[in-house]
Write a protein that binds this DNA or RNA. Structure first.
Lengths: 114, 114
DNA sequence: GATAATGCCTAAGTTTCTTATGTATATTTG
DNA sequence: CAAATATACATAAGAAACTTAGGCATTATC
């Protein structure tokens, strides 16, 4: 991810899974655009991080791929498997827990977690 | 950090700086206990992560050290320099921004940032 | 007297990024 | 219509921040 924040490490997987849980299927380039759009241009996922991440999730059985030919250009659409769906739930819970623990330690003003 | 959450990577520095900004001076072992206490035992900073992190912050001029002899045992007390104090403010702002961007992407229920 | 707690440390290995490329096609713009 | 930008995939080298696994010494507790 650019606009680098060392804090960010490890959150890319969660982002990918969550976006796929909301969209049925997405291709890599689309994910990079979606993140840029959702963060109003503040974050830009690098392809050097994203593609290896997608390949790893696929190898782990979290994602399945269908290749689609758009004219002469190929797209690789990714979608969640059942295992990937469970993992998404788990990752989201972990992230919320991370936020909670961080808030206990740091007491960030303006942040509320219930 | 144990209870490993890959997300956590990069947040240790911020935690150390923030705790020191609230305590004037702390020693390494004390920091590990404080984090455990604040998170009700959920997080346990590993010494293999903490000590190198403290050394790095010292080398960067963020922290200064005074060694104190407690009987036969030595403690290394760390405290923020002026530079470290500025860095703390910066890191905390970055962390809040990270939370905000993550919330834009993930929309975690129960989380509010103003 | 043994075990756990206190207190410091380092080194090897892993994971997850960034940065820098590479390849190719499609679209927009001057 | 040529050049630049956008779309779309990919990999490889290196950096950063961890985990795991040790090591050493002192003090308190059972």
């Amino acid at each position: 991810m650019q606009k680098t924040n060392p804090i960010v490490k490890g959150s890319l997987t969660t982002i990918v899974l969550k976006l796929l849980s909301e969209n049925k299927r997405m291709y890599g380039y689309e994910i990079t655009r979606r993140v840029r759009e959702l963060t109003n241009g503040e974050w830009q996922i690098t392809e050097g991080a994203l593609y290896p991440s997608l390949h790893k999730l696929e190898a782990e059985g979290m994602l399945e791929v269908t290749i689609e030919q758009m004219g002469n250009r190929a797209r690789k659409y990714y979608s969640l498997t059942q295992k990937g769906s469970k993992e998404t739930t788990k990752k989201m819970a972990e992230l919320k827990s991370f936020f909670e623990q961080m808030q206990l330690i740091l007491n960030i003003p303006g942040l509320a977690i219930k």
